[in-house]
């Protein structure tokens, strides 16, 4: 009876089950979070600790030297470092935004309007996920060359719009939108674009928030080295990789780089995940 009062929303839950659940999550969770702790700890290790033998998991004498060295190296860069940061931020933001909108529109049409060819097209998209990208690199390069998009932002941004994964994810979630909801919007005189944007998209908010994470992660790590040659168009991961090429002496800087590259996706992850959970814990979809 006491449990009911503490948790009015959750029915049919036994106390033992709740405890077991938490114990399992803590055990496995501490196992999963190891690399993150390791990355944080490494970034603050002085050089002698990074190469210490036997290796140590946690830092003993934390220092910010690695970050200082990194910023010194950045300042020496031939192209201002802010340029690399801008390149990556711009291509990531544009690619992600375009992908979410374009893939969602296509998914909406495929799921909610049955038309000739819709099933076939969807099957092709899903099947394409299974082809190894290693061998499509050369044909992809040829396509870029034919379009004259080599060495432009377009080569990084536009292909991201058409990733198969986004369409597949959005289409699977659109199945859960009740048709009656869309029908009533149309009855009220809303056009398809309005129905899509104001009715369908809010219904599948968890889906596109999740898609933002996937797309962001892919683009954030893109070096673009096959398509981009001009130094001022190169991306942040590319520039940072160059710094790491410096060999052993740069190991400390490398650890700092890894931590800094991790921060932005993690922050974005926390923001999107908590808004997924907040919006949906109050209301579900209703027919």
């Amino acid at each position: 009876m006491k449990m009911r009062k503490l948790k009015p929303k959750r029915l049919n839950r036994s106390l033992g089950g709740d405890v077991a659940n938490i114990v399992i999550l803590v055990i496995f969770g501490s196992f999963m979070v190891l690399p993150m702790i390791y990355a944080i700890s490494n970034a603050f290790k002085p050089l002698d600790e990074i190469f210490m033998f036997p290796p140590r998991f946690f830092v003993r004498n934390p220092t910010t030297d690695n970050f200082r060295d990194l910023f010194l190296l950045m300042a020496q860069s031939w192209v201002p470092f802010s340029r690399y940061i801008f390149n990556t931020l711009f291509t990531t933001a544009a690619g992600t935004a375009g992908h979410v909108v374009i893939a969602s529109m296509a998914a909406f049409a495929l799921e909610k309007h049955k038309f000739p060819g819709s099933k076939l097209f969807f099957n092709i998209v899903v099947t394409s996920l299974m082809f190894s990208p290693v061998v499509t690199a050369i044909p992809n390069y040829l396509v870029m060359a034919r379009l004259n998009w080599l060495d432009t932002y377009l080569a990084l941004i536009v292909p991201a719009f058409g990733y198969s994964l986004g369409l597949f994810l959005m289409k699977q979630f659109m199945v859960t939108i009740p048709d009656s909801l869309l029908e009533s919007a149309r009855m009220d005189g809303a056009g398809e674009m309005k129905t899509f944007w104001t009715i369908a998209m809010p219904c599948v908010k968890p889906a596109w928030l999740t898609l933002i994470i996937f797309s962001f992660q892919t683009l954030w790590g893109a070096t673009g080295s096959t398509f981009i040659y001009s130094e001022e168009l190169k991306t942040l991961p590319y520039a940072l990789n160059q710094i790491l090429m410096g060999g052993f002496a740069r190991a400390g800087v490398g650890a700092a780089v890894i931590l800094l590259m991790m921060i932005v996706p993690v922050v974005l992850f926390m923001v999107t995940q908590s808004s997924i959970i907040q919006t949906m814990s109050t209301s579900g979809l209703k027919e």
Partner: peptide, 10 residues
């Protein structure tokens, strides 16, 4: 975030 950590940390 904790369970997704291996996929997000470098």
């Amino acid at each position: 975030l904790i369970f997704y950590a291996p996929s997000i940390s470098g």
